[in-house]
Every structure is written in structure tokens, then in C-alpha cells.
């Protein structure tokens, strides 16, 4: 097996008396596109929040590159190379698309407060460099034309792209996408899966995504984990998931009806 980038080791998360995640374990190899699926309330977003440091797991460990990262500060997780998007789009609404990407580049923009106030040379060189980098990322998503538009003025599909682009700007090793195709039409979804595969190659990423659209999952994911009420009920290729009896009885009926 290839190098394990992320390992979830029997993680349990309890909120008061509710067990959201129950002794869950899975591992993601470097370079994989890994899907996390399951109906609403299965605990998918909770797992995201645990990996990104928003929640500290009640028990169990999260290992990233072999280091225990359970319960680290959320901003620290980003510095270590874990970036995420949100289920409901959370762009910085008062800012332009370009500025949104520049926020993602914040930590790589290495001039100090004093250098910014006094407008010393490093300010200019970094600002120029980061703007070019931001435009490059926007071009990857074919939304460079909107760079100076207000982020909230974009269409829903394009806002999703901006959010992924912004996460990509933080220079992650592991990119976590929470329902990237939600609310997109089939053509947009098709385009999105092409973009995700492309950025995976271009930026040497490992991708973990939550998704309900099984067609999208089938097209893009190497492996999936299926969750039901915080427990893992399947682990394997998406093609096998679709024919797995346990999964069918628990989920796919719901997907087909949906």
C-alpha cells in the first residue's frame, strides 16, 4: 500500500448523550480521491470537523503524515496542509473573488505588519507575486474573468468553484471538500469532476470529499467509506459500494428515491 497520509483510528465523538461517530477507522493513501458517503446525520461533516481541528474527538486519534493531530487548533491544521470547503458556501461576501483567494494565500504572503504600514519593498514584491498566483489558481477553475467581481455576485456553481480555489490557495496536501457538487446541474458537475481530477494532478493533492451524488462519486472516487449513524458499514471501491447489500438496504434506496 502507498504511504498513508491520513489515518482515522477508532475515533468516537459524543455530543452530550448523542454518539455522532462511533469507533470509526479508515485510512487514506497519498494521491487518492476518497469519498465519504451516507445519509444526512450520518456524521460525515462531524468527521470533517474533527480532522480540521474544529472538534476534539471524545476518544481515538487522527494521524496526519504519521503525526497525531487530534484536537489541534483549526488554523494550525491549515498550516500543516489540511484545507477544507464548507457544506453551505462561506465566501467572504464583502470582498472580490481575487481577494477571497488572497485570503487563502495569507500565510504565504510573508511581509510583516510594519512592512505593510511603511510599504517597504517586500510588501510590493509579495503582493505582486500573490496576485499572480491567485490569478493562476482562478484560471485553473476557468473563473479568472470574475477576479474583480464581488464574490457574492457570482452564480452558485461559480461560488462553489471560488470556495474550492480558496482552499487550494492555502497550499494543502489534503483537500477536503464538503459536498462540492451540491446544487450544481449535471453539466456543472461534469466540469467540476474534471477540474478536481486536474488540480489533483497539478497540485499533487490527496482529496477527501463528502458527496450525495453517486454518479459524481463513481466518476471521481478511488475508494469510499459509507457511514450510517456514525458507524462504518462499507469500505472499498465505489463500484462495489453500489452492489453491496448492506449499503443498498441502508442507503441506495434513498439515493434512488431522492
Amino acid at each position: 500500500m502507498r504511504e498513508r497520509l491520513l489515518e482515522i483510528e477508532s475515533v468516537t465523538m459524543k455530543f452530550g448523550g448523542v454518539t455522532a461517530i462511533d469507533a470509526l477507522s479508515f485510512a487514506i493513501a497519498r494521491g487518492e480521491i476518497y469519498g465519504l458517503i451516507g445519509p444526512n446525520g450520518a456524521g460525515k461533516t462531524t468527521i470533517f470537523n474533527i480532522i480540521t481541528g474544529n472538534y476534539r474527538p471524545t476518544s481515538g486519534r487522527v494521524l496526519f503524515r504519521g503525526e497525531d493531530i487530534s484536537g489541534i487548533k483549526a488554523s494550525e491544521a491549515v498550516h500543516r496542509g489540511i484545507a477544507r470547503t464548507f457544506q453551505n458556501i462561506r465566501l467572504f461576501k464583502s470582498m472580490s473573488v481575487l481577494e477571497n483567494i488572497l485570503i487563502g494565500l495569507h500565510e504565504q504572503t510573508k511581509y510583516s505588519y510594519i512592512e505593510a504600514i511603511l510599504r517597504l519593498p517586500r510588501y510590493f514584491s509579495y503582493e505582486k507575486m500573490m496576485r499572480e498566483k491567485a490569478m493562476e489558481i482562478l484560471e485553473e477553475f476557468a473563473i479568472a474573468g470574475f477576479a474583480h467581481s464581488n464574490a457574492s455576485a457570482l452564480s452558485y456553481g461559480n461560488q462553489r468553484k471560488v470556495e474550492i480555489a480558496r482552499a487550494l490557495a492555502t497550499n494543502p496536501t489534503l483537500l477536503m471538500l464538503d459536498e462540492p457538487a451540491a446544487g450544481m446541474n449535471p453539466i456543472e458537475t461534469e466540469e467540476l469532476s474534471r477540474i478536481i481530477r486536474k488540480i489533483k494532478e497539478d497540485y499533487d493533492l490527496t482529496i477527501l470529499l463528502i458527496e450525495h451524488d453517486m454518479k459524481f462519486v463513481n466518476a471521481i472516487c478511488d475508494r469510499v467509506t459509507v457511514l450510517d449513524y456514525g458507524e462504518k458499514i462499507f469500505d472499498g471501491s465505489p463500484a462495489d459500494a453500489v452492489v453491496d447489500e448492506k449499503v443498498i438496504s441502508a442507503y441506495l434506496g434513498e439515493f434512488r428515491n431522492a
Binding site: 474544529n54 498550516h79 462561506r90 465566501l91 481577494e99 485570503i103 511581509y111 503582493e127
Partner: peptide, 26 residues
């Protein structure tokens, strides 16, 4: 100068959506 710098952008990010700002490593 503060507003038009990475610090000003980060301040606005905190105002717009603090969780998203944290998710950007700020």
C-alpha cells in the same frame, strides 16, 4: 495601508466569516 494589505484582508475576513477565516489558516 493596513486595509490594503494581507492584514486588512484578514481583518475583513474575520468580520465576514470568522470560521471561514480560521479555515484559511488565519
Amino acid at each position: 495601508h493596513i486595509v490594503y494589505s494581507r492584514y486588512g484582508r484578514a481583518m475583513k475576513a474575520v468580520r465576514d466569516d470568522e470560521d471561514a477565516a480560521i479555515a484559511m489558516g488565519i
